[in-house]
Computed example of a mutant assay.
Amino acid sequence: MGLMRAAVQLVSTGSIQSGGSTITMQVAKNFFLSHERVFSRKFNEILLALQIEQQLSKDEIFELYLNKIYLGNRSYGVESAAQVYYGKSINELNLAQIAMIAGLPKAPSRYNPINDPKRAMIRRDWILGRMKDLGYVTPEEYSEAVNQPVTASYHGAKVELEAPYIAEM
């Protein structure tokens, strides 16, 4: 459906307005292609995604995705995010902290628990609610997790020199 929506927008406006990528397509782009928004890149992305799906299981593809995506504050991947936001490994986090990280992929800048803890908590609680509704957590676990405060703080490397453009390179 995302591809169809993107195709309709491309035809109607003449330019790429939004993404239509599946997780596999995002893995193909993140590992093998540029982020340039051109039709040829999208075509190559689709071909690579088809090859990836022939070689890897959905769980393996999702693992690659989770270990490559940007999650704010110079963290790429869930383990890096756990280190940056909590100073711990991902398997040491409690349910509320894990749900906080799970809310980041949608919009890391918008749901950043350091920059906007209130909005991040709303997103975290929504994730926890979905987990409860889908049977991944019990009502008791849900209640305990939503009552926890935001405990994220920056644990990343200290910036010694302000050079934003070269840092991104």
Score class of each variant (00 low, 15 high):
R110F: 11
K88Q: 13
N94Y: 01
I166D: 12
Y142F: 10
S34N: 10
S109V: 08
L33V: 00
G2R: 10
R110W: 08
Q26C: 07
I46P: 02
F31W: 13
V78S: 13
G129M: 09
L56F: 04
I114P: 02
S75M: 05
V78Y: 12
I166W: 12
P117M: 09
V137D: 03
L134C: 15
Y136S: 05
A82Q: 06
N115M: 05
F43L: 12
P108L: 04
M169K: 12
T13Q: 14
I90L: 13
L161A: 12
D59N: 13
A96H: 02
A6E: 01
P164C: 08
N67D: 04
G135R: 01
E36T: 11
E63H: 06
A99N: 00
N112L: 02
Q148H: 07
K68D: 09
S80Y: 09
I114Y: 02
G20I: 00
G129C: 04
G156N: 07
K29C: 00
T151A: 09
T22M: 00
A163P: 13
P139K: 06
M4D: 13
V11L: 10
F39Y: 15
A99G: 02
L66N: 08
L10D: 01
L56Y: 08
A81F: 04
I90M: 14
E45A: 05
P113S: 08
A7H: 06
M1P: 08
A6Y: 06
